[in-house]
Computed example of a mutant assay.
Amino acid sequence: MENTTWVNNHTGRSDFDLVGLFSQSKYPYPALLCVVIFVDFLTALSGNIILILLIYCDAHLHNPMYFFITQLSLMDVMYICVTVPKMLVDQVMGVNKISAPECGMQMFLYLTLVGSEYSLLAVMAYDRYVAICLPLRYPILMNRRVCLILVSSCWLLGSVDGFMITTITMTFPFCRSREIHHFSCEVPAVMKLSCSDTSLNETLIYLCCVLMLLIPMTIISSSYSFILFTIHRMNSAEGRKKAFATCSSHMTVVILFYGAAVYTYMLPKSYHTSEKDMIVSVFYTILTPVLNPLIYSLRNKDVTRALKKMLNVRSVSQ
């Protein structure tokens, strides 16, 4: 009889319930929160798309650094679209269900994009290292072919990471409550629903995440250590200022993105609660895509100059 009940619990339902951010018990004004998130979503979309178009249209921005920035903006646009639209539609329609295949696909896309961004930030740090520390060899070391290989490798590593972790997570038997205490199919939240022992799989996922975070962080820290040493030795004050401004923009993005990722995937369970996990996820799912185009545009004279040029041309044509 117990086996029959277990099979019914395991196979009788193929969908999950997303508790989400808009639970009445947590937030007194869910409609206002929904509007704020919708505005942030539109801001992230418009900011990143404008940045991509600006770099594409301005010939002065056709260099490796801005090519990598377009890839970063593309990743931001894609992964904010993976989770936020469904969360907002569910709130409007009063539906909070997601099927198991949809949950797996959302998890795979999200992990792929986040993993790709981890690697891309390391590539961007290496690009700045070559540009500042090895300027004479920069055209050779960072030619178009090398840039395409590096970006393709980022996407490949991200997809492999997403496939492995999604496969491990979604093959668990889910025989407990089907309520995911999150607004998306986040791996830690989904694994809590399993009725089997997940300790070995959690260790494998932890090691995978450590590699995906540790290797890029090592590259980033090494690159910026050499960069800071080189900047300190520069004779030109203007050169030091320009190099430091560019690197500080990159480091701001790295700290924001990696800080949230370390909390989510590397800290022990004792540090986690459902509320904290959702707040941190909101930070790097919604706020980071909003901040990235602002960081790379407002703090970059080349981008602001290109934007002013585009606006002036448009006003003259009108």
Rank of each mutant, 00 (worst) to 15 (best):
N8W: 08
H10L: 06
G12W: 11
D15F: 09
V19Q: 11
F22H: 03
S23H: 13
K26C: 02
Y27Q: 09
Y29W: 12
L32R: 06
V36C: 08
F41R: 11
T43N: 05
L45D: 03
N48P: 05
C57D: 11
H60L: 12
Y66N: 11
I80S: 00
T83R: 02
V89K: 04
S99C: 09
L111W: 07
L113R: 07
V114I: 15
E117K: 15
S119G: 00
L120F: 12
V123A: 13
C133W: 01
L157V: 14
S159E: 04
D161T: 07
F163C: 15
T166C: 15
T167P: 01
T169N: 02
F174W: 07
F174S: 04
C175G: 05
E179F: 12
E179H: 14
H181M: 14
C185F: 14
M191Y: 01
K192E: 11
L193S: 03
C209Q: 11
V210E: 02
V210Q: 06
P216S: 06
M217T: 08
I220M: 13
F229T: 07
N235D: 14
N235K: 08
A237P: 00
A237I: 06
S248Q: 14
S248E: 02
L256K: 02
Y258A: 14
Y258K: 12
G259E: 04
G259W: 07
H272V: 10
S274H: 13
V280W: 09
Y284K: 11
P289V: 04
V290Q: 04
N292M: 08
N300I: 01
V303D: 03
T304D: 00
A306C: 10
A306K: 08
A306W: 06
M310G: 00
R314S: 06
R314I: 03
S315V: 11
S315W: 03
S315R: 11
S315N: 09
